[in-house]
Nucleic acid binder design. Structure first.
Lengths: 238, 238
DNA sequence: AACAGTATGTCAGTAACTGCCATGTTGGCG
DNA sequence: CGCCAACATGGCAGTTACTGACATACTGTT
């Protein structure tokens, strides 16, 4: 995240002065934008409004964010770490699902430790709630993460990069994680003091229970019974 | 889809003359738009271009499609049927996953029977491939279907409408179905005569095999072992 | 102190999209 | 047949998102 092209040593924090300013204005624009979005909605907020409120020219705004909507997410996503962690676990021999779930659990536990970041995340979640244009951005971004994670995982498992099975597994695992995250947000908003990790753990447990209950003989993603390679009569014939 | 407000009998095809014209111009705009998109790309195609090529005014264009991108999808989605079918199966006592997979398999088999529709679907798929704005539309639409299906299924199962477990299951099942669809498209483009249903069946079979192989003692979505309700030590506690 | 690199602003221009009003066109109904 | 209500379309003006080109200022380095 902080890595640059020509710095010999991977220095940690001593950011360039310019860089620091750039980040400052970035955050300033972001905060002003979120404020206005919350206040009047995305559609009713013009770029000129945001620029004026942030003390910059509209032209400069577009040098920081590709679109109005992008200004809502200045997020330095923790997801890069999640990908790396997952791949490391897989290379260490962990099954795919275990690696994914553990990594999510770890990230969530980490989030549970920083109440400050919670509020920011909540704010964005609530903001995006009723704004289709923002939801679209988030969903597309989710898809990108899934794709990246699937490709890396497949390679780490010694499978082709576009392996369908791995993609399906990643979609399932990440889907559950996102549901937990949303639920956690809802709970917090309702005043209930749930932890993200707890919500996630409970969802996973309920999922296994649900599958056991729905298909007692063999819980799992695929159709019950049958041999690979041909459609099994039981399941989707008729 | 054809149902109207004030027609006493649910007449089948005798569409209003006006209605028919409207559908004609809709399709005309759609086809012209897809053609131009394929030819020069979405970004390089203006609404004025499309309107001119379709013989209408730009103003009229926006009375048919909300945005330029929407013109790429005049689709009369078969998904309404899929939802209904799934819910019926659930109410008939089928487990959720079975109902979902069977409905998808049915829809796919149906698609396999109409070579004409194949080409159209392929064209759109290929078109959307490299166009981020189109992908975004599709992904959002997918999300809508998931949400609708999850809500209906949950209610049909006697669970709360926003039940997380059901949502997770629907996301997983639909995710696999979409992967199969995309793969099928890829195969067809490569000249291989695969059937959609076959591709889907194979993916499902491979999925069960994969989970068996990855977690021999108990394949499934959730963490291996452990009792519901509390985090199991095995899995995500380091 | 000069210089290269970068951040910012101004300006002009394109194109998406909307509201308003005027003009046809269609489908009943007396 | 002729009138009328409903609807489809076009033209126009206006707002807003976004981009390229150019000029100017600021930063960090030698």
């Amino acid at each position: 995240m902080t890595a640059e092209k020509d710095s010999p040593q991977p220095e940690d924090l001593p950011l360039d002065l310019r860089e620091r300013r750039r980040l400052d204005t970035l955050r300033e624009i972001h905060e002003v934008a979120v404020g206005l979005f919350e206040e009047r909605g995305v559609a009713a907020t013009t770029v000129d409004d945001i620029a004026a409120a942030a003390g910059i020219s509209p032209r400069t705004f577009f040098r920081y964010f590709a679109t109005k909507e992008h200004a809502a997410f200045a997020a330095e996503s923790d997801f890069r770490d999640l990908v790396e962690e997952t791949l490391a676990k897989i290379r260490g021999g962990a099954p795919l699902f275990t690696a994914l779930q553990d990594s999510w659990a770890r990230l969530f536990a980490q989030i549970d430790e920083r109440p400050r970041q919670h509020d920011e995340a909540m704010r964005l979640r609530r903001l995006a709630e009723g704004e289709p244009t923002l939801i679209a951005l988030l969903v597309v971004e989710d898809g990108r993460l899934d794709a990246e994670l699937a490709e890396g995982s497949a390679l780490a498992l010694g499978r082709p990069a576009d392996d369908l099975v791995v993609q399906a597994a990643v979609i399932s695992a990440n889907g559950a994680a996102r549901l937990a995250y949303r639920e956690w947000g809802r709970l917090r908003e309702a005043g209930e003091p749930a932890t993200l990790r707890g919500v996630y753990a409970r969802l996973l447990a309920e999922l296994t229970a649900f599958f056991r209950e729905q298909a007692p003989e063999e819980p799992g993603l695929g159709p019950r019974g049958g041999s690979p390679g041909s459609g099994t009569t039981r399941g989707w014939a008729t």
